[in-house]
Amino acid sequence: MALAGLLLAAGCAGPPRGEVTVLAAASLAEAFAGLGATLSFAGSQQIVAQVEAGAPVDVVATADVESMARLVRAGLVDEPVEFARNRLAIAVEPGNPRRIAGLGDLARDGLRVVLADPSVPAGRYAREVLDRAGVRVRPVSLELDVKAVARTVAGGEADAGIVYATDVGPPARVDIPDAANVVASYPVAVVRSAANRPAARAFVDRLLGPAGRQALSEHGFVLP
């Protein structure tokens, strides 16, 4: 019986197996859900802090190049690969009752706008597009990750927020024209201290392969 088990295990030696723990940017939550790994999501800067602090993760995926570069400089991860791109959009209540047409409307009096804190990429990008458009927004809150912005608008506590285009579906989304938008680049890398490096690499391959590409584009990401 034990021998049979052993043979069975040996027979499965094709793709590397075992638990893979992936720490990914909050905006990736839905797209990563079906990719078969233990998933944990946080703001990208939080990811950096966690990996620097020695969190036991095998793969990291951030929503910006800067965060990943910090991990590369610290020698904590292998060479990163860009796997997806994203743009910003304005999240509004479904049906857009406040008739928000673009960035300029976010400066309107009496409009409750939430942004992500500038310490996370979504907040930094939001500030960038607003500055470039010359729009001065007075947010009611600077949320600690981008999902909190989407949640606050969806829950009706705020009228609008700036999120990734992938965070909200069309009825609750106002697009920002490409000329005024930024392109967020998402890199993924295997963590040097990964407990299971073959399985970690297999996850990255899956993400870059057909399964990952399909999941990403289904959720609105642009493929590089």
């Binding site: 009611v140 809150s141 600077l142």
Partner: peptide, 10 residues
């Protein structure tokens, strides 16, 4: 409940 705005709720 109150969000996170420096000077007001942070």
């Amino acid at each position: 409940f109150a969000g996170s705005l420096p000077g007001r709720t942070r």
